[in-house]
Design a protein around this nucleic acid. Sequence first.
DNA 1: TTGTAGGCGTTATCAC
DNA 2: GTGATAACGCCTACAA
Lengths: 331, 331
Amino acid sequence: MGNSRVNVRRVAEMAGVSPATVSRVTRGTVPVSPELRERVLRVIEEHGYKPSHFGRALAEQRHGALGLVFPGLSGPYFSELIQGFEAEALETGDSVLVLASHSRADTDATVIDLADRVDGMAIHGGTVSTEAIAKVADQIRVVVMASESGPAQASVSVANDSMKALTRHLLVDHGYRKLAFVGTPDGSPDVTTRWQAFLAAHKAARRKPPAEPVRVGLQQSDGAIAAERLLDGDDRPDAVVCANDETALGLMLSALGRGLRVPQDVAITGFDDMPMAALARPALTTIRQPIRELAATTARLLADPLGQPAGDIVLPTELVLRGSCGCGGAP
Amino acid sequence: MGNSRVNVRRVAEMAGVSPATVSRVTRGTVPVSPELRERVLRVIEEHGYKPSHFGRALAEQRHGALGLVFPGLSGPYFSELIQGFEAEALETGDSVLVLASHSRADTDATVIDLADRVDGMAIHGGTVSTEAIAKVADQIRVVVMASESGPAQASVSVANDSMKALTRHLLVDHGYRKLAFVGTPDGSPDVTTRWQAFLAAHKAARRKPPAEPVRVGLQQSDGAIAAERLLDGDDRPDAVVCANDETALGLMLSALGRGLRVPQDVAITGFDDMPMAALARPALTTIRQPIRELAATTARLLADPLGQPAGDIVLPTELVLRGSCGCGGAP
DNA sequence: TTGTAGGCGTTATCAC
DNA sequence: GTGATAACGCCTACAA
């Protein structure tokens, strides 16, 4: 912790050149004569000089950082999100400032504050108010993930409506009579759309959907909570459609722990296709969404120097039928 | 996106004062006469002036940001970690730059790069090489989490050796004959200590431990993989000690899915006490560690202006006995 | 190709 | 209490 840092001027002096030349060497933009370049590089090497981010940021008027805002949830979904985003940001030499929103209340303020520490910001649907997004978007480039763009410059989300095909599969192909939905529609735009697709499938099949979803969060423990409400009574559903894999697996664990058989006593489906989905017994029927690509696309949109309008990008999803819905194969 | 930002000079001009006075008002350190203060505040309000981070950082020689480096793993553990860290950082007005390390190879380089964008860095055990830590620690304050400090200024970890008490409980109190350990000791310092405690407990009870642990990762899906190796053969263990709750729950799900009874056919224990642990059926016997406090303490150590040496802090853990080890209560 | 000089926006150190 | 003025470290016209 004693690294007496050297600056351009000092390096220039020692190399017997002007600061400008040093800058040219470190940036590599403008050609410099081999001889001087060599001299400068030697001094840089010798003194471990590294251009200060302070100075650079100030001079270039850019932070070299992207913001990522999401609800502080656990699970593979958000890990994939962070990693995918970061991997892409690294490509362009940007750092990632993360805001794992806590209470929605102060998140708005924090996000606005974050806005002048980054060059662009990715905001996950359902984490901050539209007003806050508008304010930020007025200042820097904003891309919304898993929701509509609203006041933001662009959005990237996935085809949640494939939930309709899944629901139809349960209703028509398997002939289940009584379905339940686990998830809170008002909680996040993703879940909103999934619930609507669930309802639409019922309507298309002229079947009566449940009046209300089982309103719980998206964590595995929420699946266990849903289990208490759904499995302990005597009007148990045939099949339970969960808003994501985590809750589905939590529910499955609870079902099996109660001595119920899946899918014979109750069929269960998820959304995401996280690694555990394929490994569970029975394996989980679900919808695969390209989380990493979602994040990478978002980062790319933000890093893009003179980004085109871009608009709203929707990535495809894929229905993955496995044992937990009653399809053959796995036990 | 057209916010023609104003700067101190401009504000000063409009308020008819000097830039210094404007600065004094925004910082609130030195007293300013009510009259001028009022004038300045009005102009600031009117033009939405906000001091630029660029300028501030350069003048104050500090970024106002803390770095957080951890293996890009999913699950409640790391979510808690991020949130705990960030919540504390927000207190002191710092932003959090996250590095969810991907391949260990390039992480070293990235971490060194990150070092001159933050004022302090928290590094999770097992993510970067000791050499890289040394380099960074030479430049800024570094606190290592869940590992020994090494070249870093300080470290914060939890009492992993309570794994010894847990193992003893299985061996002595329940009298299980054949135990297995799920986790990769070389993968992270935490797991190393837990495996050693597991071995120590066997030795203390004069019992022969398994020759090798089941080397898998820390995700839920790894628990399912472990299940294939442990549960399908005919020399199934009595009890399986997992390095964390996630793998334990993955294993439990697989066990139940195979028609095995927990704990009668196989007892299972975890480490962390994540929310799902208490809700599973049977509820998971585990060791509770204060993840949030771990993160908060680390952040506090980093933000501390003239931090004392601090040294190595070890936070307490607590053995939580539930149904999955065979203890009464839950089914 | 290279050097000089000015600017990026803020804070801190002086005088007054 | 307040106002000049000089850093802070870098980049980039502009001139040579």
